Simulated assay, not measured.
Amino acid sequence: MGKFEVHGGTKRDFDFNIGPVENDGDWKRFGDRLWADVARVLEVSFAASPGEPEATGGHRYWFENDRMSVSLYVDEGEPGWVFERAPAMLTARSRTETVETWQLAEKLYDSLVVLGSYFVAVFAEDGMPIDANFDIGDDW
């Protein structure tokens, strides 16, 4: 049993917080690169779903089809906490009976970490950390 399966369930989400290992401060470029990497991992095209600017200065990305829905929001993060290092918020949900959402989340986590370009932390629906490839502290 994988780390994600024990947190799975019919309608359970996994919240990803992701940040660049090398930060040049261009959050739009980072969001576009992350969105492209997520598309490659999930083996779908997000070409028709580019990031849309938000009034708050962040960028929102959204994709859905009959197999999954994926959303990404990127902003500058909250200083002094885990989200400062990993400000992008990603959620992917399976819409099929053949792939569970936890399987989708586990595939995303493993594939993004292997790239070596991202800090990735994943939280269960109740806010408890499941896994991270950087130190997120013990204050949970």
Rank of each mutant, 00 (worst) to 15 (best):
M1V: 14
G2M: 12
K3I: 00
V6S: 13
H7V: 06
G9R: 01
T10S: 11
K11I: 03
F14K: 03
F16H: 03
N17S: 11
N17F: 15
V21D: 01
E22V: 11
E22P: 00
N23Q: 08
N23L: 04
D24L: 04
G25D: 08
D26I: 07
W27E: 03
F30T: 03
G31H: 00
R33S: 08
W35E: 00
A36C: 02
A36T: 10
D37S: 10
V38Y: 05
R40S: 12
V41A: 11
E43M: 10
V44D: 06
S45R: 02
E52I: 15
P53G: 06
E54A: 14
G58D: 00
H59R: 12
R60S: 15
Y61V: 07
S69L: 12
V70E: 05
S71Y: 10
W81V: 13
W81P: 04
V82Y: 15
V82P: 07
V82L: 14
R85C: 04
P87A: 11
T96F: 10
E100I: 11
W102H: 14
A105S: 09
E106D: 13
L108A: 07
V113T: 09
G116A: 09
S117P: 00
A121W: 10
G127T: 04
P129G: 06
P129M: 07
I130R: 00
D135V: 11
D135H: 06
I136G: 02
G137V: 10
G137T: 10
W140A: 12
